[in-house]
Amino acid sequence: MPLNPDSELARLMATLPQVGKVEWIGLRPAREKVMLEVESAEALTAGGLRGDRYKGGSGKRGITLIQAEHLPVIAALAGRDVLPALLRRNVVVSGIPLIALKARQFRIGDVVLQGTDPCDPCSRMETALGAGGYNAMRGHGGLCARIVSGGSFRIGDEVVAL
């Protein structure tokens, strides 16, 4: 059942007074290849990021984001250091709750995105993080987004709910 847009819960969910910030950007050149850390990226409308293996793939997962504040949590639960490239998400964002952007449009640099689904961990996290890695990421995997309007963005750009 859809949420009543006039409800108190809808009002609370729509309240995002803060903006976020892009902390890290990575591209996956191919399956099981090391991610490439980049300073900026080009997002292709209804596609993915230029240079990423998912470019032109499913529109609802054109880009994946993870919250910087969750990296220490994942590290603590996995019992090891966690670098962003290890988690295979395209963008690390700080300062804004990503889950609040699900089903909403938001802007990063010139790019307009639509949050689609939580970005659940895949079975590869067990290998990447060690035994229990999959469970360490559950609830902390970030957000998948569709690229509504392409363009470029870079490290330091704001993440703003529209």
Score class of each variant (00 low, 15 high):
Val93Phe: 09
Arg104Gly: 08
Asp157Gln: 10
Pro17Glu: 13
Gln105Gly: 00
Tyr134Ala: 07
Ile96Gly: 13
Ala41Pro: 06
Arg104Lys: 13
Pro29Asn: 05
Ala145Ile: 05
His140Ala: 13
Ser40Leu: 05
Lys55Thr: 01
Ala10Asn: 11
Tyr134Trp: 13
Pro17Trp: 11
Gly156Ile: 01
Met13Arg: 15
Gly48Thr: 01
Gln18Glu: 14
Thr45Gln: 12
Leu44Glu: 00
Glu32Pro: 03
Val34Glu: 11
Glu126Asn: 12
Gly57Ser: 03
Glu158Val: 12
Val92His: 02
Gly51Ala: 07
Gly48Phe: 01
Ile66Ala: 04
Val22Met: 11
Val92Ser: 01
Met137Asp: 07
Pro5Met: 06
Ala103Arg: 06
Trp24Ala: 02
Thr116Asp: 10
Gly151Tyr: 02
Gly56Asn: 06
Ala75Gly: 10
Arg31Asn: 05
Ala128Phe: 04
Pro2Lys: 09
Arg11Cys: 03
Phe153Gln: 00
Arg146Ser: 07
Ala85Gln: 08
Ile108Ser: 02
Met13Gly: 06
Glu39Met: 03
Gln18Pro: 15
Gly59Cys: 04
Ile99Glu: 15
Met13Thr: 09
Thr15Tyr: 15
Gly133Trp: 09
Gly109Asn: 03
Glu42Asn: 04
His140Ser: 11
Leu36Pro: 00
Pro72Ser: 13
Glu32Gln: 07
Gly51Trp: 02
Leu113Met: 06
Glu158His: 13
Leu12Tyr: 15
Ser58Asn: 14
Asn4Gly: 12
Ala10Phe: 08
Arg146Lys: 12
Arg138Met: 15
Arg107Leu: 07
Val91Ile: 13
